[in-house]
Amino acid sequence: MKLKLSDILITIVIALVFGIIYKLWGPVYSLFKPFGLHIGDVIYGMWFIAGTVAMLLLRKPGVALLAETAAASGEFLVGSEYGLSVLLYGIIQGLGTELMFALFGYKRYTAFVAALGGIAAAVGSLIMDAAYGYVMDLALWNLLLLIGARLIGGFLIAGLLAYFLVEALEKTGVTSLIRPASDEDYKALDR
């Protein structure tokens, strides 16, 4: 199950597309966050979507981490207003998603696991926030609101929306390029 060159390239292409969206998402998020009530953090989930989408498409170990890291690098290279912090966030968010698919032995690619992957990425981002400092200095109710909104965002956008997108992509038949052939296909050679 090693990543082939085409797996890597496809993952990075998808990631870069999302990287551009990540960059555009910055001002959107800033607008959605008026006076810091953190309701806007629901849309934060967009920043985890590359990992789940790539993983659901390619179904190989390492893809979520690679995708989220590459998306963050892309976001950074086009001049993200969050600067280099996006790289570290990307890595840890990607790790979160990766971990969930790993827990299921890279065998289950359902909406449920995708949603868990999105939530895990949200947890990753919160860990970064804590390490970043000051987030613990928020009033408790405000902090809880932040955590809740973030997790819901991960669940909805990086989980369910990502799953919906990949399902729509599968209908176009493009996944036949990516997915490995089944044992039956190989057996048919000997018949």
Partner: peptide
């Protein structure tokens, strides 16, 4: 040579 595309009905 025997070759089959994944999911194709025949060789």
């Amino acid at each position: 040579l025997r070759l089959k595309f994944a999911g194709a009905p025949s060789l």
